[in-house]
Computed example of a mutant assay.
Amino acid sequence: MISAIILVIITIFFPPVGVYIVAGCGADLFINICLTILAFLPGHIHAFYVIYVYYNRKEQAAEGYFENRPAPGVYSDNVQTGGQGYGTMGPTR
């Protein structure tokens, strides 16, 4: 929970940094940089949307519920899965 609060504070001042933290270097970051350069408010809206999707999917995964449909306008697999999609392996025998 504290990490989410710190992430929101970072995003208030630098929206692309907040997107980079949850989505990594990819299309979401590029879109956010462009939106922030063109107008500061759309960059914030996009950044907070990406962060919301990430934490919402992370909470759903913790409850055992996985969303089948991708969130519109989000291109990062890490955000789509709530951070659960990378490096997951079954138990070893």
Rank of each mutant, 00 (worst) to 15 (best):
I2W: 11
I2C: 03
A4C: 15
A4D: 14
V8C: 10
V8D: 06
I9V: 11
I12W: 11
F13E: 05
F14R: 08
F14I: 09
P16I: 08
V19W: 02
I21V: 06
C25A: 11
C25P: 09
C25N: 13
C25W: 11
G26D: 05
A27Q: 15
D28W: 03
D28S: 04
L29I: 07
F30G: 03
F30D: 04
I31K: 00
I31G: 01
N32Q: 07
I37D: 05
I37W: 06
I37S: 05
L38Y: 09
L38D: 13
A39D: 06
F40R: 02
F40W: 09
L41T: 08
I45N: 00
H46N: 04
A47K: 01
F48H: 02
Y52R: 01
Y52S: 02
Y52A: 04
V53K: 01
Y54T: 03
Y54H: 06
R57N: 12
A62M: 08
Y65V: 14
F66D: 04
E67L: 12
E67Q: 09
N68D: 12
P70L: 15
P70W: 11
A71K: 00
A71F: 10
G73C: 13
N78D: 05
T81A: 08
T81G: 03
G82T: 10
G83A: 11
M89R: 10
G90I: 10
T92M: 10
